[in-house]
Amino acid sequence: MINARKRLLETTVMFAIPVVALWMLDDISVDDAKFFPKYICYGMLILASINALQLWLYLNRIRPISWPTFLRWSLPFKGGPVPFPVRRVGMALGLMTVYVFAMETVGFYLSGFLFFLLSLLVLDPAKPTPAGAGRKAVNALIFMAVVYVLFSVMLGVVIPSGIAL
C-alpha cells in the first residue's frame, strides 16, 4: 500500500527545514557568516525537490494520480502489520521527559533510581506483583550503586546533586 500521506508529510518537512533556516539567516548582518549555511540550504532544497519528483514518479507508476486517495493515512505509518505500541512508547517518552527535566532539582542518583524503578514497573507487560516490584527495586538500587561507585567514587565525576545524592 502506498503510504502517500506519510511521504507527503516527509517531503513537506524536507522543504520546510531549509526554508526556515534561510529565513533565520536573513537576520544576520555579516554576509560572510551566512555564506556556508546558505549554500547548504540551497543544496537541501534541491535534494527535497528531487525527493518530491521521485515521490510523484513513484505514485504515478503505482496508480493513476487521484489526490483524495493520496491524502489518506495508511497502515505502514502505524508500524505495519504489528500494532504500534502507542501507550507504551508514550509512557516511556513521558517518563524520560520528567526524568531529564527533574534531574537537576531532584539529583542524579535519586532521580535515576526512581526512573529505573518506574520504567521497570510501568513498561513491563507482565502482571505486577509485590515480590516482582521488590526485585525491581533491588535491581534499580544495584545499578545506581554501581554507577555511583564507578563514576562518583572511582572517577570523581561531578554530577547534579539536587536535593538528594
Binding site: 516511556a92 526512573f115 520504567s119 521497570l120
Partner: peptide, 12 residues
C-alpha cells in the same frame, strides 16, 4: 532493563 540503564547512561 536495557531501556532504563541505557537512558540513565545517555543522560549521564
Amino acid at each position: 532493563f536495557m531501556v532504563a540503564a541505557v537512558t540513565i547512561l545517555c543522560v549521564y
